[in-house]
Amino acid sequence: MKIKVLKSVLFLVSLLMLQQGIAYSNGFDTFSQHTAVVEENDIDPAALFYMESRIALDAEKRVRSLLE
């Protein structure tokens, strides 16, 4: 039982460390600029397929209209 609790705590601590690591990396220019772009444009970088991204669908329409 003790080991199970320990492993669970370890998992939660790793999650927290990952979150803090990403937050800390925002101190670097490239990361902070990237995060700002994602937030400003309301992008979901985890969208798997084009239908999940409104921006991707709009981008395709803009390209079509420019070429027409």
């Binding site: 990237h34 772009v37 994602v38 444009n41 992008i43 979901d44 970088p45 985890a46 969208a47 798997l48 397929f49 084009y50 999940e52 991204s53 921006i55 991707a56 981008a59």
Partner: peptide, 8 residues
Amino acid sequence: DATGAVVA
């Protein structure tokens, strides 16, 4: 790989 990451 992922569409969302391409957009970002």
